[in-house]
Design a protein around this nucleic acid. Structure first.
Length: 218
DNA sequence: CATAGGATCGCCT
DNA sequence: GGCGATCCTATGT
């Protein structure tokens, strides 16, 4: 378990990171970043350990395939750094980060985290006495641990440096954000595979858009 | 309005 | 590894 207190580089990821063109690269680069939520003043967070890229209108696995726009998917067409969260199987809120410019509906699904901050609250949310080893593995479980609900879809998770008026620790309005704390996964520990549960996507079903961090045991 | 199905999970065998 | 839960979303009449 990394010691986040000792990491010397704490930095909330800014807009330019999310606004880039290559959603697969962003998906890869999010491995090892810290995902935080703060709802009702309570902080929880973990290290992102699994992601999937969804490559907009040309990607048959994407909700925005062929430019589809509905009330739900409209959020995907916002600018990079927006949260796109939707309900899956009637039960699970799945958390995605919109990337690229406005009107380009790229997104990264966060599939797993390693819990780091707020264990007590995460136990409450999952109704467990202690967190299981695999409690953060699976996109539905990520949202459960962090208290993310699909009604939070559309929240801004980024910030614009020029608009920054005070220390981010005092930005009580921000509910979800990502920080770079200097963790760099070993390249050979990050596995690339096809995406989960998208067999319906025909020729796009096998694209190497999933990244899984298999950490060597310390 | 009605209805099929889903970027899943946990419990069961 | 099989299956039911559970309800919103998208689509069609």
């Amino acid at each position: 378990m990394p010691d986040f207190q000792k990491a010397d580089s704490h930095q909330m990821i800014e807009r330019s990171f999310y606004m880039r063109d290559d959603v697969v690269l962003i998906s890869r680069e999010l491995i090892g970043k810290y995902l935080f939520t703060c709802f009702e003043g309570k902080l929880t967070g973990g290290i992102i350990s699994e992601t999937e890229a969804y490559n907009g209108i040309v990607d048959k696995a994407s909700h925005a395939w062929s430019g589809r726009r509905t009330a739900r998917t409209e959020i995907m067409y916002r600018k990079g750094g927006t949260a796109y969260i939707y309900l899956c199987y009637g039960i699970h809120s799945l958390f995605n980060i919109v990337t690229n410019n406005e009107d380009i509906p790229h997104a990264v699904l966060i599939r797993s985290i390693i819990p780091v901050v707020g264990f007590d609250l995460m136990c409450l949310r999952t109704n467990k006495r202690t967190l299981n080893h695999n409690e953060g593995i699976g996109p539905g479980k990520v949202s459960k641990l962090l208290g993310i609900h699909y009604s939070n879809s559309g929240l801004d998770i980024s910030y614009d440096q020029l608009d920054r008026k005070s220390d981010i620790q005092h930005d009580i309005k921000r509910k979800i954000w990502i920080e770079d704390r200097g963790i760099i996964p070993e390249a050979e520990e990050v596995h690339v595979t096809k995406r989960i549960g998208v067999d319906y996507a025909q020729e796009d079903a096998d694209l190497p858009y999933r990244f899984v961090w298999h950490k060597k045991t310390p």
